[in-house]
């Protein structure tokens, strides 16, 4: 009897896996791109830009993700101007609110990570790039970014795992992804362990995939560190 409950729950939660993955597929690439842009903004010589971005990072990193999700989901709908603008088509959906919240959150952490990576590129390398006649753009594209990105791969991998876990909070905005379904099962069947095992193993599997992806990328972009046979 209990075993069958596990199986039934597992398939119910498994069906909600698409929703979790959809959230990740939409928000991860956007977050990645904006993280890099914001990292350059943070390092820019323009005082106004770098100050604004550092205040943004400070505010986002100092508050819980739940506050940010609620601010976007409940708070924005409270403002009349937002309700009457064209963005309301997207913002009335819990899914897009979730994507927005996740992106805003991950960009703050990601920008700091990438800033560390960009700053860790050695001065001598940049100087030798300049001596070889690289222009400013190709200096960034061919020298600084590749070195910085592979430097931050492990740290950014941690951030990706945090993102996978963060998608569970979107369930509090009525968007039924895995944690939302698990909660519903726990509240109706009073069999919390079965639902936890089902949802937990799926989350562990997702995180396992992320870890493997990061490991593969590290292997691919660090050819000089591979063991020679």
């Amino acid at each position: 009897m209990q075993d069958s409950l596990i199986i039934v729950n597992f398939f119910q939660i498994f069906n909600a896996l698409d929703e979790t993955i959809l959230l990740l597929i939409v928000s991860l690439p956007i977050g990645f791109i904006f993280s890099i842009i914001f990292a350059f903004g943070r390092l820019s010589k323009n005082k106004f830009v770098s100050k604004t971005i550092s205040i943004y990072i400070f505010c986002i990193r100092g508050t819980p993700l739940l506050v940010q999700i609620y601010l976007i989901y409940f708070g924005l709908g409270n403002i009349k101007a937002v309700r009457e603008s064209i963005f309301w088509i997207l913002l009335k959906e819990p899914f897009w609110c979730g994507v927005l919240a996740l992106v805003i959150n991950t960009v703050a952490y990601g920008a700091e990570i990438f800033r560390g990576g960009i700053q860790s590129v050695k001065k001598g390398q940049i100087e030798s790039g300049m001596a070889l006649g690289f222009g400013k753009i190709s200096l960034y594209r061919r020298l600084i970014l590749p070195i910085a990105l592979r430097q931050v791969l492990p740290t950014y991998g941690n951030e990706l795992i945090l993102m996978v876990k963060a998608t569970s909070l979107i369930s509090l905005t009525t968007y039924m992804e895995m944690t939302g379904v698990a909660r519903k099962i726990m509240a109706t069947t009073f069999a919390p362990v079965e639902a936890f095992v089902a949802a937990g193993s799926l989350y562990l599997f997702l995180n396992f995939l992320v870890v493997q992806l990061i490991k593969f990328l590290e292997w691919k972009y660090n050819p000089h560190l591979r063991l020679k046979n």
Partner: peptide, 19 residues
């Protein structure tokens, strides 16, 4: 450590809240 860090915090809170 692997399980608790790999599973969302909310799920753990639900497990302890309901169980």
């Amino acid at each position: 450590t692997t399980v608790v860090r790999g599973v969302p915090e909310l799920l753990i809170i639900y497990l302890i809240f309901f169980g």
